[in-house]
Amino acid sequence: MSELLTLVKLLFLDSARNKLETFFSILFPVVFLIIFGFVFGSTGESARTVGIVGADVQVVKELESVGKWRFQLFPDCEELMAAVQNGKLSIGLSMNGSSVELFYNERNTNVLGEVKMLQIVVKNLLEEKLNNARSYFTVSKMEHTPTGKEISTFEHILTGVIAISVLSNGMFSMITVFGNYRKKGALRRIILTPVKPVKIVSAVAFVRILMSFLSLFITLFLARLFFSASIPFNWFRLISTLVFSTLGMMALGLFLTAIFKQPQTASSVASLLNTIMMFFAGVYFPVHWMPSYVRWLAYVLPVKYVADLVRVSAGYQLLESYFFWGINVLFLICGLAMLTVAANLFLKSE
């Protein structure tokens, strides 16, 4: 037992001090989280800045509470028009008593829908404020989302970041341990000690799972700190997902290490796979955003299933229990099988 503990402690230290590994498994996903978080915000959409002239503070506050726009005050109409004309702003709004004018570039088709929406919102707001108008009918919309709770773009990215970090953590670390360290000869010296190969691979796997949890907590902490994001995870499901999918991604790394004798080649292939999976597995963007002819690709990329499992654990996606646990068991089997192969391939006499 003490052998295992010593191995876990020191492999963890070695791993945590490995800048490249830490970058790919922790910092890289966090960087994506922060970039996308600031672009989309925790509500999922980016708020457009609209220039405004002649509105009182109360009206601006009311408009901002819609959450769709930020407003920048302008001293007069000329300046506002100039800002729209030279492209600094896409939409300008001028209020003068009961008259409201909207400025926009009519060639910019991207804003047409938003202009229409702004027009309706402003009209309703002003009618309500100025005329004290009240609706006779209230129409409620009850959305039925068969795929679980509605997920915002930010939440989609956040859960994707967790999946990508599991992938990087499992895949790249195996190339470091069983590729680089084997090539350099560090594993040969360990083989000569009385410790059993199964203990070595168990320690390696345990450290990877530990790193996955560390990465998860950092990601969730930053998401909460910067974007006030709070995902109501089913922790039992999430913990199981993290453990089993880390093992599954380790299997992928071990597979690459086994087929490419040069760790540098394995590492390059892993980087390529990592990039493909980031953009084509529905991790950062939903699969239906992709052109239909490349959607099939997502279904053959294992990280898609990691992301699905994380989203199911967060309640954003519904999946039959047997399917959820089936994928987890498959990851577990792949991980254990490849670790057994690794113990026999890399930790035995030559």
Binding site: T6, L7, L10, L11, D14, N18, G185, A186, R189, P194
Partner: peptide, 19 residues
């Protein structure tokens, strides 16, 4: 000879003693 790159000399000796 090669050892785990990011461990110190002290930690490397402790690692092997542990093994």
């Amino acid at each position: 000879s090669a050892f785990l790159d990011n461990l110190t000399v002290k930690e490397t000796l402790e690692l092997f003693a542990g093994l």
